[in-house]
């Protein structure tokens, strides 16, 4: 499945604003809501991602067609990475461990901001680093499905 890369940048920008609000307020509920957004994109695909819907309905009709479409797999994987960090952060805030909440949210914010402003997919790049450090000489691609 192919997606409009500008929709990804838009979604990352909205995510950036939400995560800044989470850090400022320390609200676990807001971070939990963002985790739900990540979860929908990861589990059901970017087509159903809430911010992507906003882009598709409100913004894309006003723009020219995209010059190029992008494969869905990398950003969808990155949404999964965001989900992990937002769940850890939510647990941190909810359990009264603010450094855990702040730390996890800060990392997610850095990734979302880099995606929105520079188009870098930090979550995607973590994939190879994780695979590299996994022991095993000939790891097949079976683990791809685990994510």
């Amino acid at each position: 499945m192919q997606v409009d890369p500008r929709g990804q940048r838009f979604a990352a920008a909205v995510t950036t604003v939400v995560l800044i609000a989470v850090l400022v307020t320390g609200s676990w509920a807001l971070l939990a809501a963002q985790a739900v957004v990540f979860a929908i994109a990861t589990l059901f695909g970017l087509r159903y991602a809430p911010y992507g819907r906003v882009y598709a309905v409100l913004i894309r009709p006003r723009l020219a067609p995209p010059r190029e479409l992008e494969d869905e797999a990398p950003p969808r994987f990155a949404q999964g990475v965001g989900l992990v960090f937002s769940l850890v952060g939510t647990a941190g805030y909810a359990a009264g461990i603010p450094w855990l909440g702040n730390g996890a949210t800060a990392l997610a914010l850095a990734a979302a901001f880099l995606n929105a402003v520079f188009g870098f997919c930090l979550g995607c790049e973590m994939y190879l680093l994780v695979r590299r450090s996994t022991p095993g000489k000939r790891a097949g691609s079976a683990r791809v499905g685990d994510y």
């Binding site: 995560l19 400022v24 320390g26 914010l109």
Partner: peptide, 20 residues
């Protein structure tokens, strides 16, 4: 404190992004 963390993250990410 959260606002300071957010500002620091954005500044660091900007530097990283420009170098990158």
């Amino acid at each position: 404190e959260g606002a300071l963390i957010a500002a620091a993250v954005l500044a660091a990410a900007t530097v990283f992004g420009l170098v990158r």
